[in-house]
Design a protein around this nucleic acid. Structure first.
Lengths: 216, 216
DNA sequence: TAGATTGTTAATCGATTAACAATC
DNA sequence: TAGATTGTTAATCGATTAACAATC
């Protein structure tokens, strides 16, 4: 089978892996050594089969009657996700959302280290936001190349999103975490992950609307 | 059919509605009056049938040969999502992520207005973040009741998430936008929408990892 | 009328769940 | 050994896509 035909993993399973990881780290902290699917399923309010299927994509195998070794399982998930070593990232667009992400301390647990921010606004360039330097967008290309940065976080206004994306790719960026509502056009060798807060908000407000309607 | 058995709408369709809305508002701004599924599908890089199915959940009907009337379609989507009138929300937890959301200006397009923030930290209480007041968490209950606030945005540390959730519900909150990694336990009449940035990051980094592996 | 476009019904695909066999 | 738990195969469910009928 040629490598570019390799089958992907179920998207919902990959998205659930961080939930398991968080729980497992907690259990490890409490001194537990092994854990069963039943136990995990209960804590996360899911089915046991789903837990087994999800964990299986990391290549881990459990032992009947015992369950899974927690350290081994944590290692397998971190390896699968590429979270064993933290990866450096550059953020572009130091607006309110960008600033927030710069200050968010939870990404370390997820193998991500935001090194610096970039902006075109001369009033922002040269300042620091949450201890991180805001650099001139002009210097992005050279710095990203020199530091071998592979991840770009996109928090610019939607109307310049595509333009910035193109420049990121030329600078060697291979994966873009897109917080803008724009649909980015990229070559197939570039990874794009859209955050789409508006989709999440659509779920929240439509369900609330249905709920309120049903009670009138 | 009893109202509590009403069939839900396909989740992926609801999550795509904001994408259509954004495009339609843009087309309206350019002076267009009607639009076909083919046109929408092209712009968003999807299939035409999916577009029709998605739009159908709002109850809209198009005209063969012509397409959909843009103002009518915008109205139908906004009505379905409950975005015709903006709804007020309280945010709890004025940390870095919370501050970011307070400053984010895009929520207005999505029918959400964050009125104020709440925190327990005395150094934050009384200050303003992006023009919004930070109030004492103690005053949440009374204010939420008095102002009939239905939406709570949860950006507190994970270990107090459940506790804050319980208090929110007692204060009359009906829908919680949960930015913490905690799995919240709530009665069935309360809407919870989890944002789970770590799931998104898991997708990004696992795909990047696979990509880099395949090239070695 | 002819052709473009909508809307619906059927087929496919992928994810979840159920049933059961394997194993420590 | 018996029983708990894993892992796999089959059945179900939901979403997407394809085929086609309806209509302006």
């Amino acid at each position: 089978m040629p490598t570019d035909t390799v089958k992907g993993f179920p998207i919902p399973s990959v998205r659930r892996l961080p939930l398991y990881l968080r729980l497992l780290r907690e259990l490890r902290g409490e001194g537990h050594d092994s854990v069963s699917c039943t136990r995990i399923a209960e804590s996360l309010d899911q089915g046991t089969v789903q837990v087994r299927k999800d964990l299986a994509i990391t290549g881990i195998v459990g032992r009947p009657k015992v369950g899974y070794q927690i350290p081994e399982l944590i290692d397998a998930i971190e390896t699968f996700l590429g979270w064993k070593n933290t990866r450096d990232a550059f953020l572009v667009g130091a607006g309110s959302l960008g600033s927030a992400l710069l200050g968010y301390e939870g990404f370390g647990d997820s193998g991500l280290n935001i090194v610096a921010a970039f902006d075109t606004n001369p009033e922002k360039v040269g300042t620091r936001i949450h201890e991180k330097e805001v650099l001139d967008w002009e210097s992005f290309h050279d710095l990203a190349h020199r530091m071998h940065i592979l991840i770009g976080i996109l928090t610019v206004p939607a109307d310049v999103a595509q333009e910035v994306t193109n420049a990121m790719i030329l600078a060697g960026i291979r994966a873009i975490w897109n917080y803008t509502p724009a649909k980015l056009e990229v070559p197939p060798t570039i990874v794009v992950e859209d955050v789409r807060l508006s989709s999440s908000l659509a779920m929240l407000s439509s369900r609330l609307t249905r709920l309120l309607e049903s009670q009138r």
